[in-house]
Simulated assay, not measured.
Amino acid sequence: MDIIPPPETFVIDAARVACDGDERGGDGHPRVWLQIGADGFADCSYCDRRFVLAGGPADRR
Rank of each mutant, 00 (worst) to 15 (best):
R50P: 06
R16C: 06
P5Y: 01
F10H: 14
D2P: 13
R49N: 12
I36A: 01
G28I: 04
A15Y: 07
D39K: 05
S45Q: 15
I12F: 06
A38M: 04
I36F: 00
A54R: 15
R24T: 07
D22V: 03
G40F: 05
G40D: 05
R61T: 15
G26N: 03
A42Y: 04
D48I: 10
V11Q: 06
M1S: 14
A42H: 02
V17P: 01
D13A: 12
D59S: 13
A18K: 09
F10N: 13
E23G: 15
D2V: 13
A18E: 08
W33K: 10
R31M: 09
R49T: 13
F41P: 01
C44G: 09
I36T: 05
C47K: 09
V32W: 00
S45N: 15
D13C: 04
D27E: 04
F10Q: 14
R49H: 13
G40V: 07
Y46C: 11
L34V: 06
L34S: 03
G56T: 12
R16L: 09
C19M: 01
A15C: 06
A42K: 00
G55N: 12
A38V: 07
G26T: 02
V17M: 06
R16S: 09
D27N: 07
R31G: 00
Q35G: 01
C19S: 01
R16W: 10
A42F: 05
P6C: 12
C47E: 08
V17L: 06
C47D: 12
I3V: 11
C19L: 03
E8N: 13
W33A: 08
F10S: 14
F10K: 14
P6G: 10
F51K: 08
D43F: 10
D20Y: 03
G56I: 12
D43W: 11
C19Y: 01
